[in-house]
Simulated assay, not measured.
Amino acid sequence: MGGLIKSSIARKVAMALSGLFLVFFLLQHFTINFTSIFSEDTFNELSHFMGTNPLVQFVLQPVLIFGVVFHFVMGFILEIKNRNARAVKYAKYNGGANASWMSRNMIYSGLVVLAFLGLHFYDFWVPEMVHKYVDFAPEDPTRYYTELLHRFESPVRTGVYILSFVFLALHLWHGFASSFQSVGFNNKYSVGATKFAKAFSIVIPLGFIIVAIALHFTH
Protein backbone atom coordinates (compact mmCIF):
# COMPACT_ATOMS: atom_id res chain seq x y z
CA MET A 1 0.00 0.00 0.00
CA GLY A 2 2.91 2.33 0.74
CA GLY A 3 4.23 1.81 -2.79
CA LEU A 4 0.83 2.58 -4.27
CA ILE A 5 0.63 5.86 -2.39
CA LYS A 6 4.13 6.94 -3.46
CA SER A 7 3.94 6.00 -7.14
CA SER A 8 1.66 8.08 -9.36
CA ILE A 9 1.53 5.42 -12.08
CA ALA A 10 0.85 2.64 -9.57
CA ARG A 11 -1.99 4.63 -8.04
CA LYS A 12 -3.65 5.18 -11.40
CA VAL A 13 -3.28 1.52 -12.41
CA ALA A 14 -4.67 0.33 -9.08
CA MET A 15 -7.56 2.77 -9.40
CA ALA A 16 -8.28 1.58 -12.93
CA LEU A 17 -8.12 -2.13 -12.10
CA SER A 18 -10.40 -1.77 -9.08
CA GLY A 19 -12.79 0.28 -11.23
CA LEU A 20 -12.86 -2.38 -13.96
CA PHE A 21 -13.60 -5.01 -11.31
CA LEU A 22 -16.52 -2.95 -10.00
CA VAL A 23 -17.82 -2.43 -13.55
CA PHE A 24 -17.97 -6.21 -13.98
CA PHE A 25 -19.94 -6.52 -10.74
CA LEU A 26 -22.23 -3.67 -11.82
CA LEU A 27 -23.10 -5.56 -15.01
CA GLN A 28 -23.85 -8.73 -13.07
CA HIS A 29 -25.97 -6.80 -10.56
CA PHE A 30 -27.90 -5.07 -13.34
CA THR A 31 -28.56 -8.36 -15.15
CA ILE A 32 -30.21 -9.83 -12.05
CA ASN A 33 -32.18 -6.68 -11.24
CA PHE A 34 -33.43 -6.29 -14.79
CA THR A 35 -35.15 -9.71 -14.62
CA SER A 36 -37.42 -8.28 -11.90
CA ILE A 37 -39.44 -6.24 -14.39
CA PHE A 38 -40.51 -9.21 -16.51
CA SER A 39 -40.19 -12.34 -14.33
CA GLU A 40 -40.72 -12.41 -10.58
CA ASP A 41 -39.79 -16.09 -10.43
CA THR A 42 -36.51 -15.62 -12.31
CA PHE A 43 -35.51 -12.74 -10.06
CA ASN A 44 -36.29 -14.79 -6.96
CA GLU A 45 -34.33 -17.77 -8.25
CA LEU A 46 -31.25 -15.72 -9.11
CA SER A 47 -31.39 -13.73 -5.88
CA HIS A 48 -31.82 -16.89 -3.81
CA PHE A 49 -28.78 -18.43 -5.49
CA MET A 50 -26.66 -15.33 -4.87
CA GLY A 51 -27.91 -15.10 -1.28
CA THR A 52 -27.25 -18.70 -0.31
CA ASN A 53 -24.27 -19.81 -2.41
CA PRO A 54 -21.24 -20.15 -0.05
CA LEU A 55 -18.76 -19.05 -2.74
CA VAL A 56 -20.72 -15.86 -3.38
CA GLN A 57 -21.38 -15.11 0.29
CA PHE A 58 -18.03 -15.89 1.88
CA VAL A 59 -15.54 -15.31 -0.94
CA LEU A 60 -16.92 -13.00 -3.65
CA GLN A 61 -18.89 -10.74 -1.32
CA PRO A 62 -15.91 -9.87 0.93
CA VAL A 63 -13.78 -9.33 -2.20
CA LEU A 64 -16.44 -6.99 -3.57
CA ILE A 65 -16.63 -4.98 -0.34
CA PHE A 66 -12.85 -4.70 -0.30
CA GLY A 67 -12.92 -3.60 -3.96
CA VAL A 68 -15.43 -0.84 -3.20
CA VAL A 69 -13.48 0.45 -0.21
CA PHE A 70 -10.16 0.23 -2.06
CA HIS A 71 -11.49 2.07 -5.12
CA PHE A 72 -12.85 4.98 -3.15
CA VAL A 73 -9.80 5.23 -0.85
CA MET A 74 -7.53 5.34 -3.90
CA GLY A 75 -9.84 7.94 -5.43
CA PHE A 76 -9.44 10.20 -2.39
CA ILE A 77 -5.67 9.69 -2.38
CA LEU A 78 -5.45 10.60 -6.07
CA GLU A 79 -7.58 13.69 -5.51
CA ILE A 80 -5.39 14.85 -2.62
CA LYS A 81 -2.21 14.23 -4.58
CA ASN A 82 -3.59 16.07 -7.61
CA ARG A 83 -4.67 19.05 -5.52
CA ASN A 84 -1.25 19.24 -3.88
CA ALA A 85 0.38 19.09 -7.31
CA ARG A 86 -1.72 22.09 -8.35
CA ALA A 87 -0.83 24.07 -5.24
CA VAL A 88 0.97 26.66 -7.35
CA LYS A 89 -1.74 28.00 -9.62
CA TYR A 90 -1.30 30.08 -12.71
CA ALA A 91 -3.27 33.29 -13.13
CA LYS A 92 -4.40 32.39 -16.62
CA TYR A 93 -4.89 28.65 -16.06
CA ASN A 94 -8.00 27.28 -17.70
CA GLY A 95 -8.73 23.75 -16.49
CA GLY A 96 -11.47 23.25 -19.04
CA ALA A 97 -8.98 23.68 -21.86
CA ASN A 98 -6.99 20.66 -20.69
CA ALA A 99 -9.62 18.34 -19.25
CA SER A 100 -13.35 17.77 -19.43
CA TRP A 101 -15.66 18.99 -16.68
CA MET A 102 -16.34 15.39 -15.67
CA SER A 103 -12.69 14.45 -15.39
CA ARG A 104 -12.10 17.48 -13.14
CA ASN A 105 -15.03 16.63 -10.88
CA MET A 106 -14.76 12.86 -10.51
CA ILE A 107 -14.40 13.24 -6.76
CA TYR A 108 -17.85 14.84 -6.49
CA SER A 109 -19.68 12.29 -8.62
CA GLY A 110 -17.76 9.62 -6.69
CA LEU A 111 -18.96 11.01 -3.37
CA VAL A 112 -22.57 10.88 -4.58
CA VAL A 113 -22.08 7.29 -5.74
CA LEU A 114 -20.51 6.44 -2.37
CA ALA A 115 -23.48 7.95 -0.54
CA PHE A 116 -25.78 5.94 -2.78
CA LEU A 117 -23.88 2.75 -1.94
CA GLY A 118 -24.40 3.55 1.74
CA LEU A 119 -28.14 3.86 1.13
CA HIS A 120 -28.13 0.70 -0.98
CA PHE A 121 -26.35 -1.26 1.76
CA TYR A 122 -28.84 0.10 4.30
CA ASP A 123 -31.79 -0.89 2.13
CA PHE A 124 -30.66 -4.36 1.06
CA TRP A 125 -27.43 -5.72 2.55
CA VAL A 126 -28.09 -4.83 6.21
CA PRO A 127 -31.64 -6.30 6.23
CA GLU A 128 -30.27 -9.42 4.52
CA MET A 129 -27.59 -9.86 7.20
CA VAL A 130 -30.16 -9.30 9.95
CA HIS A 131 -32.56 -11.78 8.35
CA LYS A 132 -29.94 -14.53 8.11
CA TYR A 133 -27.53 -13.98 10.98
CA VAL A 134 -29.46 -12.04 13.64
CA ASP A 135 -33.06 -13.21 13.37
CA PHE A 136 -32.06 -16.62 11.96
CA ALA A 137 -35.30 -16.51 10.00
CA PRO A 138 -36.21 -19.57 7.91
CA GLU A 139 -35.16 -19.24 4.30
CA ASP A 140 -37.90 -18.19 1.90
CA PRO A 141 -36.83 -18.41 -1.78
CA THR A 142 -39.79 -16.27 -2.83
CA ARG A 143 -39.18 -13.25 -0.56
CA TYR A 144 -36.68 -11.33 -2.68
CA TYR A 145 -39.04 -9.77 -5.23
CA THR A 146 -41.44 -8.56 -2.55
CA GLU A 147 -38.58 -7.00 -0.60
CA LEU A 148 -37.26 -5.30 -3.73
CA LEU A 149 -40.69 -4.00 -4.65
CA HIS A 150 -41.16 -2.54 -1.19
CA ARG A 151 -37.97 -0.45 -1.49
CA PHE A 152 -39.39 1.42 -4.48
CA GLU A 153 -42.81 2.11 -3.04
CA SER A 154 -41.89 5.64 -1.96
CA PRO A 155 -41.63 8.21 -4.78
CA VAL A 156 -38.94 10.06 -2.77
CA ARG A 157 -36.79 6.96 -2.37
CA THR A 158 -37.29 6.11 -6.04
CA GLY A 159 -36.26 9.64 -7.00
CA VAL A 160 -33.10 9.38 -4.89
CA TYR A 161 -32.18 6.15 -6.65
CA ILE A 162 -32.79 7.70 -10.07
CA LEU A 163 -30.65 10.73 -9.24
CA SER A 164 -27.91 8.43 -7.95
CA PHE A 165 -27.91 6.48 -11.22
CA VAL A 166 -27.52 9.75 -13.13
CA PHE A 167 -24.39 10.53 -11.13
CA LEU A 168 -23.21 6.97 -11.64
CA ALA A 169 -23.50 7.54 -15.39
CA LEU A 170 -21.44 10.74 -15.11
CA HIS A 171 -18.82 8.93 -13.06
CA LEU A 172 -18.61 6.04 -15.50
CA TRP A 173 -18.51 8.34 -18.53
CA HIS A 174 -14.99 9.43 -17.73
CA GLY A 175 -13.82 6.72 -15.33
CA PHE A 176 -14.59 3.61 -17.38
CA ALA A 177 -13.06 4.95 -20.58
CA SER A 178 -9.96 6.34 -18.91
CA SER A 179 -9.33 3.06 -17.08
CA PHE A 180 -8.27 1.44 -20.36
CA GLN A 181 -5.60 4.10 -20.85
CA SER A 182 -4.44 3.78 -17.25
CA VAL A 183 -3.70 0.06 -17.64
CA GLY A 184 -1.83 0.67 -20.89
CA PHE A 185 -4.52 -0.49 -23.30
CA ASN A 186 -3.44 1.51 -26.33
CA ASN A 187 -3.72 -0.29 -29.67
CA LYS A 188 -6.00 -0.53 -32.69
CA TYR A 189 -8.87 -1.59 -30.43
CA SER A 190 -8.61 1.48 -28.19
CA VAL A 191 -11.22 3.51 -30.08
CA GLY A 192 -13.69 0.64 -29.97
CA ALA A 193 -13.04 0.07 -26.26
CA THR A 194 -13.64 3.76 -25.54
CA LYS A 195 -16.91 3.74 -27.49
CA PHE A 196 -18.01 0.62 -25.62
CA ALA A 197 -17.19 2.28 -22.30
CA LYS A 198 -19.20 5.39 -23.22
CA ALA A 199 -22.18 3.27 -24.32
CA PHE A 200 -21.95 1.21 -21.12
CA SER A 201 -21.93 4.34 -19.00
CA ILE A 202 -25.29 5.34 -20.49
CA VAL A 203 -27.06 2.03 -21.04
CA ILE A 204 -26.45 0.40 -17.65
CA PRO A 205 -27.42 3.37 -15.42
CA LEU A 206 -30.41 3.97 -17.71
CA GLY A 207 -31.37 0.33 -17.27
CA PHE A 208 -31.26 0.72 -13.50
CA ILE A 209 -33.47 3.81 -13.81
CA ILE A 210 -35.98 1.86 -15.89
CA VAL A 211 -36.05 -0.87 -13.24
CA ALA A 212 -36.61 1.67 -10.46
CA ILE A 213 -39.46 3.39 -12.34
CA ALA A 214 -41.08 0.09 -13.37
CA LEU A 215 -41.03 -1.26 -9.82
CA HIS A 216 -42.38 2.01 -8.43
CA PHE A 217 -45.36 2.01 -10.76
CA THR A 218 -45.97 -1.69 -10.14
CA HIS A 219 -47.48 -0.55 -6.86
Rank of each mutant, 00 (worst) to 15 (best):
S179E: 08
F152I: 00
P54T: 00
T158V: 00
S190M: 15
A197D: 09
V59S: 08
F30G: 03
L168N: 04
A97C: 02
M102H: 12
L111G: 05
K195G: 11
R104T: 04
A212E: 04
P127K: 11
V166A: 08
S164Q: 00
V68T: 07
S39D: 09
S154R: 01
H120V: 05
N33I: 03
G67E: 06
F152T: 00
V156T: 13
F34Q: 03
M129S: 01
Y133E: 04
P205F: 09
S179Q: 06
D140Y: 02
L4Y: 14
F34M: 04
W173P: 03
N82F: 08
G3P: 09
R83E: 08
G67S: 09
S182C: 02
L148N: 01
A169E: 00
L17W: 05
H219A: 04
F185T: 03
V13Y: 11
F200G: 04
S100M: 00
V73Y: 07
L60S: 08
A99T: 13
N44V: 00
V160R: 07
F167A: 01
V113Q: 08
L20K: 09
V156H: 05
V56Y: 05
D123N: 10
V88A: 15
S190P: 09
K188T: 12
S182M: 10
I209S: 06
M74A: 14
F21Y: 15
N44H: 02
H150Q: 08
S154F: 04
V183L: 12
E79S: 11
L149C: 00
W125H: 14
A87V: 09
I37G: 08
F24S: 15
N94S: 11
H120T: 01
